[in-house]
Design a binder for these strands. Structure first.
Lengths: 133, 133
DNA sequence: ATACAAACTCAAGTTAACTTGAGGTCAAGC
DNA sequence: GCTTGACCTCAAGTTAACTTGAGTTTGTAT
């Protein structure tokens, strides 16, 4: 199993070295050993970093993400938690879709001010109803 | 036009008073006057706060959101900016959708460890290809 | 053997978005 | 007219997620 230098990880992920060291410090990833001072990473780490990036973009905190990996670095979560998280995500996706549509509409709306546009007002009402639930 | 006390805003939005004062401090919202010491808000503020919440959940910073309102508190953005933002959102929606699907799949997957599941591996590859673009 | 680039450590600094706390003020009810 | 509770101000503290910087240590190339 090939080992990766921190610079290779940097290159492949676009993350900064300081970020990787920080991730290791908080236990989010682990280096597999050292070559002199230099950290060596397992190739699997790249996959972990993909998942971490994905999780972050989904709005999870690093702490939460850390909880999604087992001691071995393999993804590991009880099924119910996973479903709950997926539900949260779907909710967020719905939010974002509303917002995206709102923005696109506003961009094309001929009404002099957005608040005068009935479609925009309707979107706001939808948001409000949704947020209350 | 009725005015709203901070407590009414708190009740209707679920935000904390300190948050509202903070939002006012940074110029995100404006109070319309005072009753003694107490801030009075226009009803329109509730709509603004809806948009702010939506923007936040979409990953915008308060600074960015502040830039989306005109001096009068009406939404206000150049069309190109709006479209760019909508494109960003769609990208993020795509991300989240991938993640949601991944989570649901993992929750139901019979493979002993997730990494052994071909579907999971495919998802990771998709993520990776996507992130590179 | 020497130089050097690339890592390293460790403490301290940074930014966003709030929260907390101590002490002050006021409108309304008794 | 006095109390009280809801607000207020202002400075300082908090958390997450990193970044920066100063000084140190190598493995590799000359």
């Amino acid at each position: 199993m090939r080992v990766l230098d921190i610079s290779e990880i940097v290159e492949q992920t676009g993350l900064r070295p300081s970020t990787l060291r920080y991730y290791e410090e908080i236990g989010l990833i682990k280096s597999i050993g050292r070559h002199g001072l230099r950290r060596q990473f397992a190739p699997q780490t790249l996959m972990q970093l993909s998942l971490i990036a994905l999780g972050k973009s989904a709005g999870f905190s690093l702490d939460e993400i850390a909880g999604m990996f087992g001691e071995d670095g393999q993804p590991n979560l009880p099924r119910d938690d996973l479903k709950t998280r997926a539900d949260d995500l779907d909710k967020q996706i719905h939010d974002l879709t509303v917002l995206s549509k709102a923005l696109r509409h506003v961009a094309d709306c001929p009404a002099p001010s957005h608040m005068e546009c009935p479609k925009f007002q309707k979107l706001l009402r939808v948001v409000k109803r949704y947020k209350r639930s």
